[in-house]
Design a protein around this nucleic acid. Structure first.
Lengths: 192, 192
DNA sequence: CTCATAGTTGGGCGATCGCCCAGGGCGAAC
DNA sequence: GTTCGCCCTGGGCGATCGCCCAACTATGAG
């Protein structure tokens, strides 16, 4: 088949993925319908099931893709940071954009929840989280933090928790959280 | 009206609330239907709209009630704990029951998300979280912890984050988390 | 006993759901 | 110029949705 038609096809597919990311955040994972997706993407309703095997398949692809991109961004942030305290500050500053009610935050939390009800999604999300945790642990270990694996796990969870709470408590800013959360990072010499 | 009939009515209403708590956790907030609720509660479908103004009203009452009970339990836990470290241990031990995929954990996270899309629910949830945060802050302040308000906010968020992550990472046990999270608790003398 | 009232029943309303599919458009291959 | 194959259209399928309501039961008040 032709370049142009195939290209338009790819573009439609990508627009559906983008619409899915928006709508999962706006309405919630299980409240997204095929017709809503088509309208948001500006395409005919039938196209959803042409490009994707099912509605869950589209939602899963959209969510997993977004999570992979986010982990990649955090990975770059790690490479640029010098000290652990600086890393935490940059991480929280980057998080400042996410009010907890922004599309990306909500998409992530929705995906966590949906993953508890879908085996394929759970495996994919779990893999991504483990990947991030391991990268974070390696970085922490290389910068003198004791118990890097457990610290990385708790730090990742705490940050997600802050985003979750921030949706309801807007005063939970990076500036507020950073000094407290820094207590998690203990160097080898210190004693907790 | 009679005692017995009124009592049976109250009982039916309570069974619907209980069914709502189960089903929100199992299927997700927006995937709970009136017919599912009636079947789970063992009552006729029409009763849902006899006892409750709407489906969201039932879900909201169920979720808010569960959250209030949980906060009350944590309050009692605070009264019984001696030192901050002991309090954290007891809190995490109590949390051990919640695998992150248990009904209560999922109900809470579903409620957080639903609250971002419903003003009434958001106001109610926000009030409960603030209440818990304040009680925790008062306790921390009274036990020599510096910056009790911010510490309480971060601690509450971190614990919710751990529960969220535990749904996908079962190895995130209380034993693993406690020593790291303890770093958040700094006494007045210490320097972060 | 009669009436009023609260609780209950089960089906019906229009709308929407996921998914499907017959058929049209259209550039590439030959 | 004909054929092929991919992309796309839009309506239809049965099921389910939230909500409603006329009719029925049961029980305390008069």
């Amino acid at each position: 088949m032709a370049r142009t038609a195939a290209e338009r096809g790819r573009e439609v597919r990508q627009q559906l993925v983008g619409a899915a990311r928006e709508l999962i955040a706006e309405r919630g994972w299980s409240a997204v319908s095929t017709r809503m997706l088509a309208e948001r993407a500006g395409v005919a309703p039938g196209l959803v099931h042409y490009h994707f095997a099912s509605l869950p398949a589209l939602l899963t692809e959209a969510a997993i893709g977004a999570m992979r991109s986010a982990v990649e961004e955090i990975g770059q942030l790690l490479d640029q940071a010098g000290t652990p305290a600086q890393m935490l500050d940059r991480m929280l500053t980057a998080l400042e954009v996410h009010t907890g009610r922004d599309p990306l935050s909500l998409l992530f939390t929705e995906t966590y929840l949906a993953a508890t009800r879908d085996d394929d999604l759970r495996a994919a999300v779990s893999g991504i989280v483990v990947d991030l945790r391991d990268r974070l642990a390696r970085w922490l270990g290389g910068h003198g933090i004791s118990e890097p694996e457990r610290t990385a796990a708790v730090l990742a969870a705490a940050i997600d928790g802050v985003v979750l709470h921030r949706a309801l408590q807007p005063d939970l800013t990076a500036r507020t959280v950073a000094p407290i959360l820094r207590g998690i990072l203990r160097t080898e010499g210190e004693r907790g």
